[in-house]
């Protein structure tokens, strides 16, 4: 089973770091070298990937139109779902990227009948996806405090908002809960639904399990097995200033966390996770539907064999003449 393959892979990775950083005491490798390598892989990989995409031209302007076109002035255009200019496209892309507009389309239900569960699975997908991506983003930004000194001003504000519930000590971050819930949801829907299980690949379960491991190890360190924050920060600022030092007293749990993050980063450009960059380049979304207004150029517009009117008239001259149709050549 594909989910099993992914689970095994993640377990292997955990064992690897525990043996490596723990038993074999290769802490410098797991704490410094591998994170650097992962970031290099990520940057080079993503840049190459985007260049590779950009290397192929967009021969035709093929937006998928999701509403009324711009035509006669008195017909109300749907400027966001069917934009005809740059501003509209930016709006459409913003909706797509920040609010997952297309996924949201699934939510409409009406005329339910029968006693069964309401048609809401797609709405959950939108909500789950959005919750996951935003909590990931917040957590990602929050982590700058481990790398930057002084801590950027917005991070305490963000933390206060995130801990608004005022539960527990240390303060419970809402995003920690949200990411656990949303990633688990995204994982289990793939396992539970026969439809999704049918086409899910190992590559679909793997990143989810990876992120789940990262979140769990992070949460354990914050709330349960407290990690030496000062030491971690030393490592973080050292890494960022290219002056890496490996302070003592950082537990194994931290190495698991860091290693899995590094794996995720390194894995990123070679997997479906590149959708983060690709969504900006999707020709059905990032082009304006102004096809008849502005000519789109195809750089490889092919020369093709055509049939000309002259050839046509030559073939049919007699019948055309009989039918009294005008001719170019008598």
């Amino acid at each position: 089973m594909k989910a099993m393959t992914s689970l095994m892979a993640v377990i292997l990775l955990i064992l690897l770091v525990m043996l490596g950083a723990g038993a074999a005491n290769l802490k410098y490798f797991f704490g410094v070298i591998f994170p650097y390598a992962a970031i290099v892989l990520f940057l080079v990989g993503i840049v190459l990937r985007v260049l590779k995409w950009a290397g192929s031209p967009v021969p035709f302007r093929i937006p998928t139109t999701g509403g009324q076109q711009n035509s006669l002035p008195w017909i109300k255009q749907n400027k966001l779902d069917n934009p005809h200019n740059l501003i509209g496209v930016l709006g459409r892309m913003a909706l797509e990227i920040f609010l997952f507009r297309s996924l949201f389309r699934n939510t409409k239900t009406e005329l339910k009948n029968g006693p069964r569960l309401a048609y809401g699975s797609s709405k959950w997908l939108w909500l789950g996806g959005l919750a996951f991506h935003y909590s990931f983003l917040v957590i990602f930004i929050r982590h700058f405090k481990y790398f930057a000194e002084p801590v950027p001003f917005f991070i305490p504000i963000m933390q206060n908002l995130d801990g608004l519930l005022q539960i527990g000590l240390p303060l419970l971050y809402m995003t920690d809960i949200i990411i656990l819930l949303s990633v688990s949801y995204l994982f289990f829907r793939r396992v539970v639904s026969p439809q999704l299980r049918y086409f899910s690949l190992a590559a679909d379960y793997f990143p989810l399990l990876l992120i789940l491991t990262i979140s769990i190890s992070g949460i354990l360190m914050r709330y349960f097995y407290k990690v030496d924050i000062v030491a971690v920060k030393k490592l973080g600022t050292g890494l960022l200033s290219f002056n890496p030092i490996l302070p003592e007293g950082i537990g194994l749990l931290f190495y698991v966390h860091l290693f899995m993050v590094s794996v995720l980063i390194a894995y990123f450009p070679f997997s479906k996770l590149v959708h983060m960059a690709g969504v900006f380049m999707s020709p059905t979304r990032n082009l304006a539907n102004n096809n008849r207004m502005r000519r789109h150029i195809n750089p490889w517009n092919p020369d093709v064999k055509v049939h000309t009117y002259e050839e046509y008239e030559d073939e049919f001259r007699d019948v055309m003449k009989d039918a009294g149709m005008p001719l170019d050549k008598e």
Partner: peptide, 12 residues
């Protein structure tokens, strides 16, 4: 190229 690479098989 893009469509080959970025599908996450979300099932929408």
């Amino acid at each position: 190229k893009i469509f080959m690479d970025i599908c996450v098989r979300c099932g929408a």
